[in-house]
Amino acid sequence: MLVEEIMKTKVITLTPKSTIAEALKILNEHPIRHIPIVNSGKQVVGIVSDRDVRDASPSIFQQDHASDELYNPIHTIMSTPVVTVHPLDFVEEIAAIFYEQEFACVPVVSENKLVGIVTEKDMLYTLIQLTGTNVQSSQLEVKVPDRAGILPEVANIFGKRKVNITSVLIYPYKSDRQYKILVFRFQTMNPLPIKADLKAAGYQVLGPDAEDPAL
């Protein structure tokens, strides 16, 4: 999945000379937490988060204090340089950036101009799509040997039953790396025939049925 498929293209920006007061107003009026700072050529020169802006704002306990700091230019508090991504980067690369750099938003830049933005929330939305929990489905997990060709063999069992698979995830089996777990979400209310087929083909089906005390 490409960044351009999940990025938001309507981006609220400020210029380096905008004031902190303007940033505060934007953060109060819109449900956002990051504002890219761009120059007249739409190049990203910095970014501020809601925390940067609040840290630079007067304390709520000092109400009589004349709040001059609100009129400081934003470039005095913005983070720079900015980590950016390209529309043709992969979504999973952004997840690695968020994890490693410990922030939650990247501007998307193409030909040196701002074209979009991706936040943690967009990533989580994508994760929900990938896991397939947003559409009608049943779920089951199959423990299989970690070898080539295993996925089509197992998936074929669903195809033969005319059952549509909405999502597949693969992860290693606990400590024993000779095995892996295939997680399927698939569109049927009656997973029993598929479970029976999988067992007949020698695969181990995990999940609540395995421990069902009535069976």
Binding site: V135, S137, S138, T188, M189, P191, P208
Partner: peptide, 9 residues
């Protein structure tokens, strides 16, 4: 819960 069971929602 829809964790394992259809329809998941």
């Amino acid at each position: 819960t829809g964790r394992y069971l259809f329809p998941g929602t």
